[in-house]
């Protein structure tokens, strides 16, 4: 896919805040209509990238294009075509849901009957039509989030940028949101790029760019990323995890790691290992769990670090 055809095309993008290098030569492309995730712990550079794409800050070196328009040189073109939903709530609490959307519409050059129709349509689509005349300060966190989304989509952007969209959402509301984003992608061809530090949310993306310390360390679909590990992951809860780790190596000849107080083993044929382990160390562990690798395991495998390690 060439940079001109891509919904988002990033090349050699670097950014520093004073001494700190937040992005170190990042590149990837997002196809039109894709639901694309930027996954990484806090401080991994994904928020800086989000700010550059949303035109809040200018790239210092490298290039970022949205729908073929350069975010630095063609800012106005980009702004008209993107919808941005920030992590921090952007609604004016002293205005009603409809008034917030009306204001947003005016900023994007919409007005009159067309705007009113669009406001009604968008609020209905996020299930907020009945609360349209309520001050947004009276709405719940989840409801506000839905109005935010309606606000970001009001001017029919072709690319939607979402920063940590599930902040303040319960799991049910989060699933609704992801379903809606997929619907936007299939029905309207809207490209979604979202940042997240939640594995569950990342699982729902078509493709992921995984970030760590300003670098893009992986780029693939969640399934393909997990397939890199293969086999099974066994997680064992025990009060003597460290001791069991070395004994697993000496007695069973299997490498294990201790993560967040739990003993973890990646291996083929997990069921057989569980049986051997249970026999060898009967009574020395509380629970034993057998599962397929998660994105957290992928992160660990690629970086040699836990996902949450060194978070400030």
């Amino acid at each position: 896919m060439s940079a001109a055809e891509a919904a988002v095309a990033i090349e050699g993008l670097s950014h520093r805040y004073g001494e700190r290098e937040a992005l170190k030569g990042v590149g990837f492309t997002v196809a039109p209509g894709e639901v694309f995730g930027l996954l990484g712990p806090n401080g991994s550079g994904k928020t800086t990238l989000f700010r550059i794409l949303s035109t809040l800050i200018r790239p210092q070196s490298g290039s970022a294009k949205i729908l073929g328009f350069d975010v630095a040189a063609q800012t106005a073109e980009v702004r008209r075509r993107i919808g941005v939903v920030f992590q921090a709530p952007s609604l004016d609490k002293k205005l009603t849901a409809a008034e917030n959307l009306r204001h947003q519409g005016h900023l994007y050059g919409l007005r009159g009957a067309e705007l009113e129709q669009r406001i009604g349509e968008m609020l209905a689509r996020v299930g907020m039509a009945e609360r349209k005349d309520e001050l947004t300060e009276k709405l719940s966190g989840g409801q506000r989030r839905r109005v935010e989304l309606a606000k970001g989509l009001l001017h029919r952007p072709q690319v939607l940028l979402l920063d940590e969209p599930s902040t303040g959402l319960d799991p049910g509301a989060r699933r609704d949101l992801m379903r809606y984003l997929r619907e936007l992608s299939t029905k309207d061809g809207v490209t979604t790029l979202l940042t997240t530090h939640l594995m569950e949310e990342a699982e729902d993306c078509a493709r992921l760019a995984v970030f760590r310390e300003g670098q893009r360390i992986a780029l693939d679909s969640p399934a393909a990323l997990k397939a890199q590990i293969g086999g099974d992951v066994v997680s064992i809860e025990s009060d003597e995890a460290e001791a069991l780790r070395s004994e697993t190596k000496t007695k069973l000849g299997v490498e294990a790691a201790v993560l967040e107080g739990k003993l973890r083993v990646e291996c083929e044929g997990g069921a057989a290992f569980v049986e051997r382990f249970a026999q060898a160390f009967a009574g020395r562990f509380k629970t034993i769990q057998l599962g397929k690798p998660t994105l957290a395991d992928v992160f660990l495998r690629i970086t040699g670090h836990r996902f949450w390690e060194g978070e400030g």
Partner: peptide, 13 residues
Amino acid sequence: KEGFLQSVLVAPV
């Protein structure tokens, strides 16, 4: 602080 300004700053105005 509340974030309202951010959405104005990225609007085409």
